[in-house]
Write a protein that binds this DNA or RNA. Structure first.
Length: 164
DNA sequence: GCCAACGTTGGC
DNA sequence: GCCAACGTTGGC
């Protein structure tokens, strides 16, 4: 079992949207980056965990947990000429772009903000925090996963960590 | 709205 | 293959 972090803009698709979906499941379509594609197609497996991250919003940070429930398969939105994510290079007989299905697991008791994540030496190697990393899907180590989720109950940790 | 950091495109 | 131009991402 592996762990991942998946970004989504809450204006487009939020953790609440995922929770409200039928079966609380959603195809993670629209990824158009080869590095991310390789992870979606080759590495992500049912049962893997994913941190749900809200990006490009007022309060960027980790807001919940999801689970991979279907391994990589061709992203059909790439085949639809009318679709925003249409890509003529991707043909059904030889797809360029892949997606996985994710399922809602839980919403965190609080948002663990990007600002907070940056404070911990334990997360120095987190791909999300590495300079210039704009991947929408990225791996998380088990240690990072445990550490981040361990922050959830630490309600005072937000200000406490910065006061130290 | 600004801007840094990328990835992609296309001329040569 | 090089590299400038351009578009996108995403924090602030």
């Amino acid at each position: 079992m592996r762990y991942w972090l998946m970004k989504s803009e809450p204006n487009t698709f939020s953790i609440d949207d995922l929770q409200q979906r039928p079966a609380q499941t959603e195809p993670w379509d629209g990824v158009r980056n080869y590095q991310a594609r390789n992870m979606l197609r080759d590495e992500m497996k049912p049962g893997d965990g994913a941190l749900f991250y809200h990006s490009n919003c007022d309060a960027p940070g980790v807001v919940g947990i999801a689970r991979i429930v279907r391994e990589g398969y061709p992203d059909p939105t790439a085949f639809e000429p009318e679709h925003k994510h249409f890509d003529p290079k991707s043909r059904p007989e030889q797809p360029t772009w892949y997606m996985v299905d994710v399922q809602f697991v839980k919403k965190l008791a609080r948002t663990i903000s990007l600002r907070e994540l940056k404070q911990y030496p334990e997360l120095a190697e987190l791909a999300l925090l590495r300079r210039g990393n704009r991947l929408s899907v990225m791996p998380v180590t088990e240690a990072q996963w445990q550490f981040i989720l361990g922050l959830e109950g630490d309600g005072a940790g937000v200000s406490g960590a910065s006061d130290a």
